[in-house]
């Protein structure tokens, strides 16, 4: 187990390094415009461009430039915006992180519950009317753009119906958990549901396919021969094996959402998380902030995946030894 963890963390560090190089190359070495002008933003004076050229060592060799950027991002943490001059990037990301975390955690609970329930009900009733119905809802949920769904939700809850049925829905925004837990949940309820829809659809479909496969396995035939009830076979035998693929899927999706994939939901509901930060910096073409968000997001994803893999190995000895 110890060896596995070391191996997995080493590879995570290597992947992080590779990603940082990739991000660096995208922002500093793509052919086209002068990167200093790009970083400075639209309305930069020549002095600022010259300052950036010096600060990021743009007249020096590529590896030195890479080193300087990493220094600004992670060691000195003094990378700052040139659009809103003086705004440090790293503290902004850190203060936005709890919002994103609240959004993704709540949504994850909902999509796991709904997705697993949908998959189990569909598999238990395969061939009957309810199975294709649930699967169609799954397809529909996968096919809806999240930001559009969010807008429709806003339209329903914040427009005409806001004075009657939905008068309890607060206007968009965020209240921190420590300030007021009730308001925190109320403000996040519809963002949670919106974000969860896509993943609930995916998980229900994946789990149903896994369950139907599992029900054709030998161990299920053995369980049937022992005279166990269908319910017990489905929940205790087939589901336990099928959940493995859900767990690994969950690790990837959760990491990706924290790392920035929840951006669209945050923007639509006006939640000031990391995604919103990326979005506003996109509107201003504020490259240092975008770079910081991308780098921290990608690192978090890699870290989350490594943690999931370790947990996975803890649960399933076969992975550990492979």
């Amino acid at each position: 187990m110890g060896l596995f963890i070391i191996r997995r963390l080493t590879s995570a560090v290597l992947v992080m390094f590779a990603i940082s190089v990739l991000v660096f190359l995208i922002f500093f070495a793509t052919p086209g415009v002068d990167p200093a002008a790009r970083i400075a933003g639209r309305s930069a004076t020549p002095q600022i461009v010259a300052q950036i050229r010096h600060e990021f060592g743009l007249d020096r060799a590529l590896p030195i430039r890479y080193g300087l950027m990493m220094d600004h991002l992670f060691i000195k943490q003094d990378l700052s915006s040139y659009v809103n001059i003086g705004d440090r990037v790293v503290p902004q990301i850190i203060s936005a992180a709890p919002v994103t975390l609240s959004l993704v955690l709540g949504a994850a609970v909902i999509w796991l519950l709904v997705g697993v329930a949908g998959g189990v009900v569909a598999a238990a009733n395969r061939g009957k009317f309810i199975d294709p119905l649930i699967m169609f809802f799954g397809i529909a949920a996968i096919s809806v753009p999240a930001y559009w769904l969010g807008e429709v939700v806003n339209l329903i809850t914040q427009s005409k119906l806001h004075s009657s049925i939905f008068s309890w829905v607060p206007s968009s925004g965020f209240v921190s958990l420590s300030a007021n837990p009730g308001q925190w949940a109320l403000h996040l309820l519809f963002p949670w549901l919106t974000l969860a829809a896509l993943y609930a659809g995916i998980y229900a479909r994946v789990l149903r396919a896994e369950l139907v496969n599992a029900l054709n396995e030998d161990y299920v035939r053995t369980a049937r021969a022992k005279g166990l009830s269908e319910r017990r076979i489905l929940l205790r035998h087939a589901l336990r094996c099928s959940l493995i693929s859900i767990v690994s899927l969950f690790g990837l999706d959760f990491g990706a959402l924290i790392g920035g994939a929840a951006l669209l939901t945050e923007v639509v509901f006006g939640l000031p998380g990391v995604g919103q930060l990326t979005y506003t910096s996109l509107q201003n073409l504020d490259l240092p902030v975008i770079m910081g968000c991308v780098m921290y997001g990608a690192f978090f994803v890699v870290l989350a995946n490594a943690v999931v893999d370790v947990l996975y190995a803890f649960l399933d000895p076969r992975v550990r030894l492979a």
Binding site: I19, F27, G32, V33, A256, G260, L285, A298
Partner: peptide, 17 residues
């Protein structure tokens, strides 16, 4: 390992200008 949206955003923002 790179979140799709972040990768697409970085590429787009650099290339679109």
């Amino acid at each position: 390992a790179f979140p799709i949206y972040l990768l697409a955003i970085s590429l787009s923002v650099v290339l679109l200008t």
